[in-house]
Design a protein around this nucleic acid. Structure first.
Length: 245
RNA sequence: AUAAGAAGU
């Protein structure tokens, strides 16, 4: 099963859905039974190409085969529906998994929060974050950064920094993703002084600024019509051997 | 062997 599943994952990652499903049929013919890993891999691949409804069918099929879906199975199907904008189905699946005694994880909630943020629905995103904590789950750096990024994109840097402070208080060490989100939020809001300050803080923490960081700063300086500053950042980026795209 | 987060239009 491991060999086949690894191959299936490889084809799925390469976007060759057909070949992946052919392999699944082939393993069945050979009397090798697809297990939960196999189904999870198939579900993730089918969701990647926007066929969440087929993921539901695979979920049903695996249960008919006597397999018990796990948290990863549900999380993958849930993200498939989120991607298609079907939050109603995503929430229905959360209920369904809880009813089956499969507990949503921090990843499950983070996926939902991420897509609510993408849709600009910060109210719901905050609520889901709250619910996650109420359920006794401890938000990690990804969960925090996801929500922080959402607020930054909406221009609410205040709420973003409130979460940032809360996260630091809980001894979660922010990473480059966290800083990039905040720097971008500040740049978008035209708060270039604060953005520069945060950039220095990032360096002080020995985090490496990358394309995302520099792009955000250049974007901010251009937006603020500070072209010499933008050029300074651009030259600094080149000096760090980052090749502009 | 399987799930989540960062830039421009």
């Amino acid at each position: 099963e491991v060999t086949y599943t690894t191959l299936i994952d490889g084809y799925m990652k390469g976007g060759d859905i057909e070949e992946a499903f052919k392999l699944k049929d082939e393993m069945v013919v050979r009397g090798i039974h697809p297990n939960v890993f196999t189904y999870n891999t198939l579900i993730r691949g089918i969701c990647k190409v926007g066929k969440a409804q087929e993921a539901n069918m695979l979920l049903t099929e695996m249960m008919e085969m006597g397999l018990r879906p796990d948290c990863i199975t549900y999380t993958s199907v849930i993200e498939g529906h989120c991607k298609e904008g079907n939050m109603v189905e995503a929430f229905r699946l959360v209920d369904e998994m809880v009813k089956r005694n499969i507990m949503p994880s921090v990843v499950t909630y983070s996926v939902i929060i991420n897509w609510l943020c993408k849709a600009g629905d910060m109210e719901q995103a905050n609520e889901v974050f709250k619910k996650m904590v109420e359920r006794g789950l401890v938000p990690n750096i990804v969960a925090y950064t996801t929500l922080i990024n959402g607020h930054c994109r909406q221009g609410n840097t205040e709420e973003a920094f409130r979460l940032f402070d809360e996260m630091v208080k809980r001894r979660i060490v922010p990473d480059a993703f966290t800083y990039d989100s905040l720097i971008h939020g500040l740049c978008k809001a035209g708060k270039m002084q604060d953005a520069k300050k945060l950039f220095k803080e990032m360096l002080a923490r020995h985090l490496l600024p990358g394309y995302f960081t520099y792009s955000a700063l250049i974007y901010g300086h251009c937006k603020a019509e500070e072209m010499d500053e933008a050029d300074k950042v651009f030259k600094e980026m080149l000096a760090k051997r980052l090749i502009p795209n």
